[in-house]
Amino acid sequence: MHWLVIGFGNDLAGDDGFGIAVAEQIKKRAASDLAIQITTEVISTRILAPELLESISIADAVIFIDASAALNDGRPQEIDLQSLIGSELEYGSSIFLSHHCNPLALMQLNHTLYNRNPPAWLYALGSCHFGLFENLSDTVAALVPEVAAQIIDKINKHTFCEQA
């Protein structure tokens, strides 16, 4: 099973760098964890762009990690995107601007263009500080290892169950 983990956000905008920080943590773990190393591709990126479809279209499962100003909850939320992917492909620039888009739009496009509908989750965090600074706030920084561990557990559990 091939997993794709995409952490995204602007690491120059305070807690918006949460997704990138978690992705980097998983990359570090992969260096010493052969199971993760073999099964998982980890991407850190400032924005989600359609070019990611090249990686998404060959993944068996996809996990996105983001900090969102639209959410109020300061605890990480796990959102099942697959349940939404089957819905009618959404039109309109709100999901797809000229060169960046959101996780659901990418998964929907993956379905439309490559006829694939793998399981996908979004780990999203709200109540963040998006100022012009490079570090995460203490509260959000403390959540990075926790969310990285959750994601690694999920990958291992699914991989293990599949093999069993």
């Binding site: 359609p50 492909l89 039109y91 620039s93 439309t112």
Partner: peptide
């Protein structure tokens, strides 16, 4: 409303 990259994909 559909004159965008999503419309092209369809």
């Amino acid at each position: 409303a559909t004159r965008n990259i999503v419309g092209v994909a369809r």
